[in-house]
Simulated scan of single mutants.
Amino acid sequence: MKSFLNLFICIISYTTVFAQTLNHEVIDPEGHPKLLGLINKEGLQKDTYKAWFDANHDHYIVNDQLVKTFSESLKDYKIKVFLGTWCGDSKKEVPRFYKVLETANYNLDNLEVIALDNQKEHYKQGPNGEEKGYNIHRVPTFIFYKDDKEINRIVEHPIETFERDIEKIVTDQPYRFNYIAANYIQHLLATKTIDQLNTEETKLVAQLSEFVKGSRELNTLGYVYLRTKAFDKALYTFKLNTLIFPYKSNVYDSLGEAYFITNNYTEALINYNKVLALKPEDKNALEMIQKINLAIKQ
């Protein structure tokens, strides 16, 4: 009885919508603590997170001479960071980013840090929708603003180092961040209808094939749309991924899942059978086909 009550309390704690409070910690249904919403360095140095934050912060050797070349220019920028305290890349990169900013004597009042979730129903979302409008599909993401306009961003990890990447961004040098194909799709889906995009499909597939970093790039974006119930955008993104990577079983698995969730069992079956054509013993595809057939009979 006691364990059931503890689980119930954890679920209530996790699912309650809370006001915007600094360094708000929740316990997910599996018993894992995480920060959600607006946070700062003090929150990241709480006991739960201190070990990985301090280790990655203190052990990073900053290129002091390079920082001196952009520290003055950096003062004109505001920065917004989206991370996950559950995310390996965030644990590694965010402490290093803090150390570079501190070396540059950057005013941390101009830094806003937002922790996102990893639960399926809240995938890469903030507790109050803080991520909306920022095209976040990977964490960490570091967005640089000047005069309230986004200038550039660093996505997941630097192209070279934080020092070199920041220097390029704040001194107006050419800089292209990671996963630019996913960001381009986000832009297109925000500015055009899917019918319009379907007429440009062949050209778009050819363009994206040059820039996309493997099948996981658009797959991750598709799940961001799927978990936020933007089903048309999710289906479009997953379908586009199958056209770019027709030999990858995982792209058909994701498209099949999206069709299943939207109750299009015919298309779901088609895609899970494509998975089996490429990977005959795929356990998930076999289980999903059984599940779909049961749903059809009902």
Rank of each mutant, 00 (worst) to 15 (best):
H122A: 10
Q196V: 00
N105C: 05
N183F: 09
T266R: 05
L38E: 11
I261R: 07
I185V: 15
E102G: 06
P140Q: 01
F211A: 10
N6M: 04
E131V: 07
E42M: 08
F8I: 03
Q65M: 09
F82S: 04
T237R: 06
L243R: 10
I296G: 08
Q207I: 02
W86Y: 04
H187R: 07
T242E: 08
E160T: 15
L36C: 05
H157S: 15
N110K: 13
A295G: 12
V212P: 07
L235D: 06
Y14Q: 03
V251L: 06
P33D: 00
L286V: 09
P95G: 01
L35D: 06
P280I: 04
G222W: 01
D165V: 02
A51E: 15
S3T: 13
H157R: 14
D117W: 03
Y236M: 06
L269C: 11
F260G: 09
L218A: 10
E30Y: 04
S71Q: 14
R138W: 03
K283W: 00
N273F: 12
L255W: 00
K2F: 01
N56G: 14
L108M: 10
Q65D: 15
L286D: 01
G126Q: 05
Q186E: 15
D109F: 00
Q119I: 03
V275C: 13
V94A: 02
Y60R: 04
I154C: 08
V17N: 08
Q20I: 05
L240N: 08
V251R: 02
Y145D: 07
V94E: 03
L221D: 08
N183L: 10
V205H: 02
V224R: 05
L218S: 07
I194T: 05
R164W: 00
K2T: 08
Q20K: 08
Y49F: 14
K132W: 02
I159S: 12
L218M: 08
A19G: 04
F144Y: 04
E30M: 07
E72A: 14
D109R: 07
L101C: 12
Y223K: 04
Y236T: 11
A234Q: 10
N284Q: 12
Y184M: 09
L44V: 07
L111Y: 03
T69G: 11
N6G: 11
A206S: 15
N293F: 00
N198H: 09
L74I: 04
E72Y: 04
T191D: 12
K203T: 13
L204S: 09
L226Y: 02
L235M: 10
D282E: 14
I261A: 13
T220D: 14
E93L: 01
T161P: 06
E160V: 12
E42Y: 02
N263A: 13
F8D: 09
E150K: 13
L197R: 02
Q290S: 14
D64I: 11
A295R: 14
L269N: 09
A182W: 04
D165E: 05
V113H: 04
H57G: 13
